[in-house]
């Protein structure tokens, strides 16, 4: 996956300053957009987190008041614990499934294209539509799709999203269903990048299939997997749509996530933008940790700055 930069810009010539300036001018509109949509709000969020708001203006400076009241609330710790559970489950389910998929699909010859395509399709669906679709699957009534299927096997109807212990793993299953095909493709590409001669050489040395998996395939996957795992943690940590649409955080806050809590502060009937901003800062700090980890892991593989 190394990519060498083949081009080095020539920097000779007298109009060096003008050239720099014109280059910046070309980038300026885009930089302004980034500032407006991404960097600015992030910084403003920090400021806002120390204030109360009225309408959409800052009202009173409250110091760490917003943070204090967030940390004091049981809701926050529930949301935090749940978010960690989302992450753990997504490592158990969401991380391993694509690897398994890549391994088995990678072994097929005939129909490989079909399997790859089929498993990728859920990924192109709008997230919201996919989530709403699953309300019908997880309904606890006997018309729920899973209950219909269970009935064929004589199993009594079950409840799903209304079970405290099930709701998080089920939500993770939904997002795995949606995303696994795309992730599997990345693994497959990584695997197909393995030099076939390695396998052949290993065979000559008398390595059986399992040995080849252990000593050639697994290391390749691990290499890719460490990056993907951190990316996945970062994504799962921001889980919002699923609890928002499927359960409203219930039952008994069992699926409330940090992002959804933040959303609720702002738009859930209290209009507490300051508190929402504080929650946003807290989430950002946690993500920042993961991001640093990511850059560390990633630095070994790519050097972005050329």
């Amino acid at each position: 996956m190394e990519r060498t930069v083949t081009y080095r810009q020539s920097r000779r010539g007298g109009g060096k300053l003008t050239q720099h300036l014109s280059s910046w001018l070309i980038m300026l509109p885009s930089i302004l957009l980034f500032a407006f949509f991404l960097w600015g709000p992030l910084a403003q969020g920090i400021v806002m987190s120390f204030f109360t708001t009225r309408n959409v203006s800052l009202d009173k400076f409250v110091g760490i008041g917003n943070y204090a009241s967030i940390f004091k609330s049981q809701e926050f710790w529930q949301a935090f614990g749940n978010t960690v559970m989302y992450t753990v489950w997504s490592l158990v389910i969401g991380f391993l499934v694509p690897i398994a998929m890549a391994l088995v699909i990678g072994e097929t010859t005939r129909g490989k294209g079909f399997f790859r395509t089929a498993s990728y399709v859920p990924n192109v669906l709008p997230g919201l539509a996919a989530i709403i679709l699953y309300t019908a699957f997880f309904s606890a009534e006997e018309t729920g799709v899973f209950n219909i299927i269970l009935k064929w096997f004589g199993v009594e109807r079950q409840s799903y999203l209304t079970e405290m212990g099930l709701v998080i793993p089920l939500i993770v299953i939904i997002s795995t269903w949606k995303g696994a095909g795309a992730t599997a493709l990345i693994y497959m590409a990584g695997l197909s990048g393995i030099n076939p001669e390695l396998y052949e050489a290993a065979t000559i040395d008398g390595a059986g299939i399992w040995k080849r998996v252990r000593h050639i395939t697994m290391p390749a996957i691990f290499n890719l997997g460490s990056t993907l795992m951190i990316l996945q943690i970062i994504t799962v940590f921001q889980i919002l749509y699923e609890p928002m649409v499927l359960t409203k955080g219930g039952p008994d806050n069992a699926s409330l996530s940090l992002m959804y809590l933040m959303w609720r502060y702002a738009f859930g009937g209290r209009i507490e933008f300051g508190k929402a901003a504080a929650a946003g800062v807290i989430i950002s700090l946690i993500l920042l940790l993961f991001t640093l980890l990511y850059t560390r892991v990633n630095r070994r593989k790519n050097d972005w700055e050329g």
């Binding site: 009534e141 409840s159 219930g250």
Partner: peptide, 20 residues
């Protein structure tokens, strides 16, 4: 009803109206 904790005010009317 089985979906109590995900039922909303509006969905309850449907449940009653459709005879569930």
């Amino acid at each position: 009803n089985a979906d109590t904790t995900t039922s909303t005010w509006a969905s309850c009317h449907t449940t009653l109206g459709t005879g569930e």
